[in-house]
Amino acid sequence: MSSGRLERVLRDIQNASRDARRPDARLVAVGKTRDAGELAALADDWARARPGAARAFGENYVQEAATKIAALAGAGLEWHLIGHLQSNKAAQAAVLFDWVQSVDRLKLVLVLAAARPADRAPLAVLVQVNIDDEDSKHGCAPGDVPALADAIAARPTLALRGLMAIPAPRADEAGRRAAFAAMRGLFDTLAARHAGVDTLSMGMSADFPEAIAEGATMVRVGTALFGARA
C-alpha cells in the first residue's frame, strides 16, 4: 500500500466534490482480501494525511471482517459491511459493524434490529438498490425502497441513513452517469420522507469522480488505494 495512492484518492474526492459544489464525499476503504496489517498501515497514513478525520473500512464478508475488527480493536476505526449479507450472518453483523450498507429485504431488517445491542448506538443502515435490474446483483427493486425504508426507520436500534448501489459496469460514461443520476433521484425522494437520511453510497475505484458529480456522498474504494489484487 502506498501513501501516495491514498493522497491521490483523497485529492480526487476533494476535487470532484468541489466541482459538484458539495461537501467532500466520505471515503470508505475497501479491505476485501487485505489483511489487518495492510489496513493498519492505511489507517496510520490516513490519520497523518487527515488528522481527526473518520477512517472507515468496508468489508464484504462477515467472517473475514470479524478477524480484522478484533485485530484492530482500539484503533478508532469505523466498520462498514458492504457485501451481500446472508440472513444467518445478520445477527453477527449487527454486533460487529457500525454500518450495514447492503440491506435489501425485510428479513434482514428484523434480524439486525433484534440483534443490535441496546447499549450501542443504533446501527447505521443503507438500503441496497439494484438500480439496473441485473439478475446477478443483489439489492431491492427501486419500487421497494419506500416500504423497506419505513421498516428500518421504525426500529429504534437501527438508523436509516440512505441508499447504496453497485450499478452495472458500462464502457460509456453517459450510461454510468445515468445510473448514478437515477440513484440520486431515489435518494432525494427518500430524504424528503425521512429525517436523518444523508448518505448516498455509490462509486468505486474506476468511477467515483463521476458518482460524486451525480450526487454520491460516500464512495467505496479498494484498488485505487491498495493496488490490484495479486
Rank of each mutant, 00 (worst) to 15 (best):
L163H: 06
D207E: 04
V219Y: 04
A181Y: 10
S201N: 05
A216M: 04
A211G: 06
L158S: 03
L186S: 11
M204Q: 03
L200Y: 05
T223K: 02
R184K: 14
A147T: 11
D144F: 05
A154K: 11
H194E: 09
R176G: 15
R155E: 15
R184I: 10
T189N: 13
T199Y: 01
M218E: 09
D207S: 07
S201I: 03
V197N: 02
F226E: 07
A182K: 13
G175P: 10
M202I: 13
A159Q: 14
F180L: 12
A154R: 13
L200N: 05
A179M: 10
V145Q: 00
T223Y: 03
P156V: 00
I152W: 02
L190D: 04
A168K: 15
G227Y: 07
M164H: 11
L163A: 08
R155W: 00
A211K: 05
A181N: 12
A178D: 13
L148A: 09
A228C: 05
I152R: 03
G175W: 12
R193Q: 13
T157L: 03
R184L: 12
T157H: 12
D188E: 15
D188V: 13
A191T: 08
G185F: 10
P156L: 02
P169W: 13
G175R: 11
A228E: 14
D172V: 15
R177K: 14
G215H: 10
R161I: 07
A179L: 11
A211E: 00
V221N: 06
V219M: 09
T199H: 03
P146D: 08
A174F: 10
P209T: 10
D207H: 04
F187S: 10
G222A: 08
D144V: 05
L200D: 05
M218P: 01
A159P: 07
